[in-house]
């Protein structure tokens, strides 16, 4: 099977700071990819490149095995790649239907009037498909819970026929029950064949829902784990860079079939004083 979305050799700098170095990423249909890393690891820059907010300095953006140019957010959405940012981009004063169709309202054939019955029917359809429970599609979204709001933001992407959905910290502001609800939603979307990319700081959530974890550190993709044969310690080690300085029995680097660690990691160390500092801290922990 071919990945829906592939990035190859992505580089991006902001002035003197190189935010991404030679990063690869691939997302298949029907899988959830976890993107983890410490603050400043380049996760946000990477998803903004996927979303078309930033254009990469170099590298290839490949969808369905074809090289494409994604330089604007609209380019990504046209390719079926949708991003849900942490702020959810909902209009609190509007109801659920209006939020789902914001900017692409159904109109009555050729007239500027909205076709509200059709929009409501499709809203109910998509919420049922995603098993999202709300008491009415006519309540303003400000009256919904955090989990419901997250679900509405995701449903919005589904209405636009998304094939890849990128979620930035979907559970960061949620309580236990709400988190569960959102994780269930992610699983359902995966089962419907979508490719999902989930950025999270919460490793418990990552283990709950993700199929594959990609670890970023200091602008590089440093490791990729199959979740079934990985421990939290391995991922934490990859995030902090600990496995190279004190090595947790070399596990993280040596699992081979389940984990691939970019080989050139050690070579560039000297260029990056921050890295030394970071890995030093890692070994203390």
């Amino acid at each position: 099977m071919e990945p829906i979305l592939q990035l190859r050799g992505i580089n991006k700098s902001f002035g003197a700071v190189q935010a991404l170095r030679n990063v690869d990423l691939e997302v298949y249909g029907g899988e959830v990819v976890g993107l983890v890393g410490d603050n400043g690891a380049g996760k946000s820059t990477l998803i903004k490149i996927i979303a078309g907010v930033y254009a990469p300095d170099s590298g290839e953006y490949i969808v369905d095995n074809r090289r494409v140019n994604v330089t604007r957010p609209q380019d990504a959405t046209h390719l079926g790649i949708e991003t849900v940012y942490q702020d959810l981009a909902l209009c609190d004063n509007l109801d659920v239907v209006s939020n789902l169709f914001l900017g692409r309202e159904d109109t009555i054939s050729g007239l500027p009037f909205m076709n509200s019955t059709e929009m409501e029917r499709r809203t109910i359809d998509v919420l049922r498909q995603l098993d999202v429970k709300i008491r009415s599609v006519h309540v303003p979204v400000s009256a919904l819970s955090g989990g419901q709001r997250q679900s509405i933001a995701v449903a919005k992407t589904i209405l636009r026929n998304a094939r890849i959905v990128i979620l930035d910290e979907p559970t960061a502001a949620l309580g236990v029950a709400q988190t569960r609800q959102v994780l269930q939603l992610i699983k359902r979307l995966r089962d419907q064949g979508l490719g999902m990319v989930v950025i999270s700081h919460n490793l418990a959530d990552v283990f709950e829902v993700v199929d594959r974890v990609i670890v970023m550190r200091l602008g590089r993709r440093v490791a990729s784990f199959d979740i079934k044969s990985t421990t939290t310690e391995q991922i934490v080690a990859a995030i902090t860079g600990a496995e190279f300085s004190n090595g947790i029995d070399g596990q993280g680097a040596s699992v081979g079939s389940t984990a691939s660690v970019n080989g050139d990691e050690g070579a560039d160390d000297g260029n990056h004083p921050a890295y030394q500092h970071e890995s030093g801290k890692g070994s203390i922990q």
Binding site: Q74, A89, C91, N93, S98, L102, G103, R104
Partner: peptide, 17 residues
């Protein structure tokens, strides 16, 4: 509808095209 949307969240409206 777009006027109400902008009044609610201008940034979200902009991102919605």
């Amino acid at each position: 509808q777009h006027v109400y949307a902008i009044g609610g969240n201008a940034e979200a409206s902009r991102r919605a095209g």
